[in-house]
Write a protein that binds this DNA or RNA. Structure first.
Lengths: 207, 207
DNA sequence: GCCAATTACTACACGGGTGTAGATTCGCAC
DNA sequence: GTGCGAATCTACACCCGTGTAGTAATTGGC
């Protein structure tokens, strides 16, 4: 062999302005996250997934923490937008039973149509570090607040209920349904879950 | 200084037969786990917490995986024992509403009295790897099965309900209450949670 | 076509956890 | 009290991810 080739230089990845690169890195990071969990969400893995070398990631985000922060922000915003679209605000009066069903339906649809966003949000990704729990909890608190408002506005005046705990319960319940839908869709398709939910709600009227 | 002391040998930890050492290591591991999460549950950290050197841990368990497995087994068994004690088996007939309240009360008591066992079981420890989710899910499936049996045995014959989904919901609800109790006891003391729960159940009778 | 700024890559040092081989000490049995 | 086996410790090599300084290629503007 005449030339012991000097470690074959890696072909350059397509160049990209910083902002665009940042978005692409977030996309790559989300793929890694959903596929492998937080435990394997490393700078190395993200760079490999995006087809670039690690310094590119450092130039774009400075480290895993800012990157994760940005990823959580983007994901949170998407999920929150979809969720708040289902909740009437500003003291609008609605029919509670009907709304609870429609909102559940809407949320299950959202989760089903964009699982990459919702799996992390629903806590279905393994290895979540504390920062994830904190941020998720903050978002959930917001949603629970809106749900509680809806309840206060629309519950029969006579009803004595701990609205905050009930809001907690409703949100937890719908979340659990969404988890079932995403993890065992064959066993628990949307129709089954909604029918069961309707059955539970109906107990309130048929003594 | 006459003697440049040769790195001061570490004092020996008290010797212990293997089985006893294993238990002590599990205790240490549980403390580390609850305090720092799965992300910091390393052989090094466990050895330090137990006051021994790493080879002791390797001799006792062979690595982090067998140790974690043993720890999960022990924790799971404790939680499962406490839980199954609350669920009537073998087709015994009971009064459903009363039982649901008593069982919730019992579980909240259990969680409150032994948080080190229940925090991991309730998913309150950060950074759980896939194996934890799998094992927890298996245990939950068992519990849900028993709850579903109770429902089948004691629901009014006329009631048309998706018993499996309802069991899922009940278990998820009580779990959520337990999480609230352990993470925000001042805001959500046991009495408040149980009162709210009773209120929700009561809706079934007061139309 | 060429140049310069921008973007990407190579190469290094570091830190922390893993796993193991071999030396050392403890403490029970006799 | 003294062995001797069991239990513990020391010391090493290894891997993998981090973070950065310096080098090289690309590409848009002229």
């Amino acid at each position: 062999m005449p030339s012991d080739r000097p470690a074959a230089r890696r072909p350059y990845a397509a160049r990209m302005p910083l902002e665009e690169r940042r978005e692409e890195l977030l996309d790559a990071a989300l793929r890694v996250l959903v596929r492998d969990g937080y435990g394997r969400l490393t700078i190395s893995a993200i760079a490999a997934e995006a087809g670039v070398t690690r310094p590119v990631v450092y130039d774009a985000y400075g480290g895993i923490d800012p990157l994760l922060h940005a990823l959580l922000d983007r994901t949170r915003q998407r999920a929150l937008d979809a969720t708040l679209a289902l909740i009437p605000t500003g003291g609008v009066r609605i029919e509670l039973d009907r709304w609870m069903l429609e909102a559940a339906d809407g949320l299950l649809r959202a989760a089903q149509s964009d699982p990459e966003t919702w799996r992390p949000v629903l806590g279905l990704i393994d290895g979540a570090p504390p920062v994830v729990r904190e941020r998720t909890e903050g978002t959930l608190a917001l949603v629970r607040g809106f749900v509680a408002d809806v309840l206060r506005t629309n519950l029969d005046p006579g009803t004595e209920l701990d609205v905050e705990v009930v809001a907690h319960s409703l949100v937890a319940l719908v979340q659990e349904f969404a988890r079932l839908l995403l993890t065992r869709p064959d066993e628990y398709p949307k129709e089954r879950l909604l029918a069961a939910y309707a059955g539970i709600l109906a107990l309130r009227r048929r003594p």
